[in-house]
Amino acid sequence: MTNILLTGVGGQGTILTTKILSAALVKLGYDVKMSEIHGMSQRGGTVNTQLRYGEKVYAPNISQGEADLIVAFEKVEALRALPYLKKGGTIVMDDREIYSMPVLIGAQEYPHNAVELLKETADSVIVIPASRIAEELGNIKVQNICLLGALAGTLELNGVDWNAIIAENVPAKTVSLNQEAFKRGRESALSV
């Protein structure tokens, strides 16, 4: 059984990423369950999705200390999700910063050194500059698929036609862009 937690900010595309990942895992023959809590997500709150795969999955959600892998789309969200990481598990994260309202109005401080803090604490932290890669490619929105590529690289999820699954799940006009983002993300993870 492998447990993955994806976390980001509303609008970053965590739910679509999880959807594509689950489709690939089903094609690889796994039993898959994915759980998401949305409702307030469009309004700038934290969005978490949880995905479990293996031979047979019962509960769709995981508890603290159970995630083999955390994929964080934003720095502070990686920090927030840390209690979910299994001892010895891996964090794949973007170093992007998105300021929440308490930070914007100066009521709370943003920990700019979150990556360093996480590296000191957890055993395996892989930083992927997914936002920068996405901007280089011309569309910040493909940050999510770039991170998906990094995830696929980290977990060595081979034997499935990722490009075809991406094409089935993203708008027609952005297929090749997303495929490129996936490739760049995977390469980044493999080169770590």
Binding site: G45, L82, P83, L85, S100, V103, A114, E120
Partner: peptide, 12 residues
Amino acid sequence: IYPQPAQAPARP
């Protein structure tokens, strides 16, 4: 579980 090295600012 891993200890929290810093408080994550709230994101309501």
